[in-house]
């Protein structure tokens, strides 16, 4: 019993860690600009698909992963510079539609260039599972959880101990005041897109060896990441991480003890409950207290 429960818990934490990275992506962009980037899920897919195409073309694995993450980051920057910044003075609704449109463009481009099939990606190390209290843990899951933890720690250091990180936090609290102390808020916006694209891509290349990937994998992952961010109070980095892990665990437990058919429904039920019960997120982040 315990070993089975542990098994599901590991599965939940593993996928939850990638949700957490996606949720951090939403949180970063939301903090820097007050907008929700609905192309976040496509960053996850783009990272994974680019890496798998590069590996298929014979590029060594680690180089392929690095190139895929760098390329996705570049796409994020391009999106901020050419789609979001020029429209920054228009309404929030049009900005959201712009991000949805940019997501469609990314997905379409991947579909045309890499096709509709499922793509695999090798894991970071060999595939012999470890056994912990009778539960099997594949090495890739350890990589995912470990790297996600490192990334989260680095991000917390960045927000709390560096001037640039504090500038991003300050921009989220008061954009006008941020401009008046000399923070380049447009630069912060671009940077937040770059970082969120990188986080998405890292999650994507780490998760793909476990789940496969395809041109349309970003939609569902993006939605899950958004639900995780909303659970965490949209704008709270710690909330995003907890939200991601909680969502991953609830999904895994639902699949195990209810039915795997309902696994994907969990996120949608949670988001509806959330809007009704706790519109500011489960972790009490007020809208004024971001990042």
């Amino acid at each position: 019993m315990l070993s089975q429960f542990l098994q599901f818990l590991f599965a939940g934490l593993t996928v939850g860690a990638t949700y957490a990275l996606a949720a951090l992506g939403y949180t970063l962009v939301y903090s820097a600009s007050g907008m929700i980037n609905f192309a976040q899920g496509e960053f996850i897919m783009l990272g994974a698909m680019t890496a798998s195409a590069l590996v298929a073309a014979g590029v060594p694995l680690l180089l392929a992963l690095a190139l895929a993450i760098a390329f996705t980051t570049l796409v994020g920057v391009t999106m901020a510079k050419f789609a979001v910044e020029p429209a920054k003075t228009t309404s929030m609704t049009s900005l959201i539609i712009i991000t949805l449109g940019a997501g469609q463009v990314i997905r379409g481009a991947v579909q045309i260039s890499l096709g509709k099939g499922n793509h695999a990606l090798p894991g970071l190390s060999d595939e012999r599972p470890l056994h912990i209290l009778g539960a099997a843990l594949v090495p890739q899951a350890i990589w995912i959880m470990g790297l996600a933890l490192v990334i989260v720690l680095v991000l917390f250091w960045y927000f709390n101990a560096t001037m640039h990180g504090k500038a991003l936090v300050a921009t989220s609290h008061n954009r006008l005041a941020a401009q008046l102390v000399g923070i380049n808020t447009m630069g912060i916006l671009t940077f937040s897109f770059a970082l969120s694209a990188a986080l998405g891509a890292i999650g994507g290349v780490l998760l793909a060896p476990i789940t496969f990937t395809s041109y349309d994998a970003g939609t569902m992952l993006g939605l899950k990441g958004f639900v995780a961010a909303a659970l965490g109070g949209l704008g709270s980095a710690l909330g995003a991480v907890i939200g991601g892990l909680v969502l991953g665990i609830i999904e895994a437990m639902t699949a195990a003890y209810v039915s795997s058919a309902y696994k994907d429904a969990v996120a949608f039920i949670l988001i509806i409950l959330l809007f009704v019960v706790a519109p500011h997120g489960l972790f009490g982040a007020k809208s004024s207290h971001r990042v």
């Binding site: 936090v169 300050a170 609290h173 008061n174 005041a177 401009q179 102390v181 000399g182 004024s288």
Partner: peptide
């Protein structure tokens, strides 16, 4: 705006506009 601050045009705006949730010292540092 940030280039004007770099040139030495600094403003204490109407309504104070402090970074409310951040510490007083962080506000000053910023």
């Amino acid at each position: 705006p940030h280039r004007r601050v770099a040139l030495g045009i600094c403003q204490a705006p109407e309504g104070r506009q402090v970074f409310g949730p951040m510490s007083v010292e962080d506000n000053i540092r910023l």
